[in-house]
């Protein structure tokens, strides 16, 4: 464990807490893409298949459980909760996310570390995570204005993978056999997808104005 990875995990945890805060405090999920939440639940369920077979550390196990439980809780809340589900922007959240699932799975069959069940699903989860934010970014683009908590949620969600890139650079220089090129390339793509969001987020923060995405 290094400081970059720990910072990344904490940033990821903060993004989840901000999302839960937004939904429970405002009893609304407006501006949140249910499709992105479903993709993230799938990412965690397919990445942590080794949850009960490979014990790495208490921290690792607890964080995996937190990520799986929180992503499923958000999806269930957005689908079932009678108050929250009414505020879902159903007609704006129309990204065809099934194509992202299909593309990630095909790519995982072609490019993986080992052609085994667990490795293919691990690579699938890495590729899917890189693309999972697209429905959310499209939804924000369409709705134009971004409320503070939603903006912070997306910002922290993007920032966590940037910390992981620093972690991979650090591990590359400090560990002989370290090579995680699948995660590195995918993590880079993931972070780049946030580039324009980060730009407009920074502009709104600098001008202390409400965040506006160009329609």
């Amino acid at each position: 464990m290094n400081i970059f990875r720990f910072a990344g995990d904490m940033t990821h945890l903060i993004s989840i807490l901000v999302l839960l805060l937004k939904i429970y405090a405002t009893k609304s999920c407006s501006g949140i893409s249910l499709k992105t939440q479903e993709l993230y639940a799938l990412v965690f369920l397919t990445r942590y298949l080794d949850l009960f077979t490979d014990f790495i550390s208490v921290y690792n196990t607890i964080m995996k459980l937190v990520f799986i439980a929180s992503s499923l809780a958000v999806v269930c809340c957005m689908r079932m909760h009678r108050v929250v589900r009414r505020s879902y922007d159903k007609d704006l959240d129309t990204f065809r996310h099934y194509f992202l699932i299909l593309a990630s799975f095909v790519l995982a069959l072609l490019v993986n570390e080992k052609f085994t069940f667990q490795e293919i699903f691990w690579a699938f989860s890495i590729y899917l995570e890189a693309l999972a934010i697209l429905p959310q970014l499209v939804l924000l683009q369409r709705s134009g204005n971004v409320d503070n908590l939603t903006g912070q949620y997306v910002f922290f969600l993007g920032a966590y993978r940037a910390f992981y890139i620093l972690n991979w650079i650090y591990r590359y220089f400090t560990e002989q056999h370290f090579s995680r090129w699948i995660a590195c390339v995918s993590g880079l793509v993931q972070t780049v997808l946030y580039a324009d969001f980060f730009y407009y987020y920074f502009i709104s923060w600098k001008n202390n104005a409400k965040m506006q995405l160009p329609a």
Binding site: D54, N60, F67, W122, N167, R171, E175, F178, R180
Partner: peptide, 10 residues
């Protein structure tokens, strides 16, 4: 240096 465990990251 022991081989780092596969997928020891979240």
């Amino acid at each position: 240096q022991e081989q780092p465990r596969e997928h020891d990251e979240l």
